[in-house]
Design a protein around this nucleic acid. Structure first.
Lengths: 182, 182
DNA sequence: TTCATCATATATCAAAGTGATATATTTTTC
DNA sequence: GAAAAATATATCACTTTGATATATGATGAA
């Protein structure tokens, strides 16, 4: 258990809670996991085939719906693999903010440009924060319904804390740039 | 100017301030830019060759040192390219925290495991925060020496703000998990 | 002084992952 | 009933990582 592909672990993590199609997995990525992880179709579909061939998941065709649905489930072996991965220490937490990159090289540009990037960042965060706050409310209300909710709430709280810190920084950064002579 | 490779832009950004070798560029990545960007040798060296062939940078052999040093400089064309990129809106700010992923799937594990991951995260942040605080002090002291320092300080302040938010979250998360019955 | 270790320096490559695109069907909306 | 949106799978060129190989200069301890 040294070099696990992250995509395998995320998919198994999602499947450990419910059966899903590739499309639904992508949706989870773009909503629930969005604030701390992402994945593309180009990694999800091949990974699903691979998981099946390795016996970590199984696939069945959906007969009820009219759609060409491939429903994936985790196997016992898959559960073991996931559990094992969860015990291994975290390898990497990575932040890759183009906003900070453009700001860092800002001496090449006008103060105005820097302010534009900061404002765009601020707006994006302000737009997303309400969803996190709503999620917090919902999760707090149904904390006892599922043991997993406790952990979901923790990741949501992480998002809220950092987003609030971002907004504070935006305020200070704007003030700093405007004071220091635009 | 739609699809710029990020690696080209970071390298040009660094070269816009000083001449550098590939090795030195990697060092900048691992120290100064570390908190919001990263890059590997496997992308830096090919990108440097490519930048030269596109006329955005020039290469000269270092004759003074005994080492096999290839020193790269930005060209006028490269400066234009960089300036142009800096004006284009940010495409993506991405956070990819394995810690949160393992926490999110934590219902599969013991509370103890979750606490272990949180503590490891906390320790890592606590270890790195002093460097950011030191950088802040240094930059504040020599703010007027270089126009770029203003922007460096902003990115450092971003790091400090978020790291402090992380530490607050760690405290709360640990308390929450221990209270909710370990 | 010599030997090991560390830092400097460049280069390459398999593997992982992205982002875009193609295709087709069902469901919703106007 | 036509158009638009959502569901669903699949593929591929391209970017980047992470590991590894190779070699030499600098440092310091024995």
């Amino acid at each position: 258990m040294a070099n696990e592909r992250k995509i395998d672990c995320v998919i198994l993590g999602l499947l450990s809670h419910e059966e899903l199609t590739g499309y639904e997995i992508k949706k989870r990525m773009d909503t629930t996991l969005k604030y701390f992880w992402s994945a593309s179709y180009g990694s999800i579909y091949p990974a699903l085939s691979d998981l099946v061939s390795r016996g970590l998941a199984t696939k069945r065709e959906d007969t009820e719906s009219k759609r060409n649905k491939q429903i994936y489930s985790i196997t016992e072996e898959g559960c073991r693999y996931l559990r094992e991965w969860l015990t291994v220490p975290v390898e990497k937490d990575e932040l890759r903010y183009e906003t900070l990159l453009k700001l860092f090289f800002g001496n090449e540009q006008e103060t105005k440009q820097a302010l534009t990037h900061i404002k765009a960042f601020e707006e994006k965060i302000e737009k997303e924060l309400p969803y996190l706050l709503e999620a917090e409310k919902v999760l707090k209300a149904c904390l006892n319904e599922d043991a997993a909710h406790k952990y979901y709430l923790l990741t949501v709280k992480f998002g809220i804390k950092t987003y609030q810190a971002y907004l504070e920084w935006c305020e200070e950064a704007k003030k700093f740039l405007m004071d220091s002579g635009a």
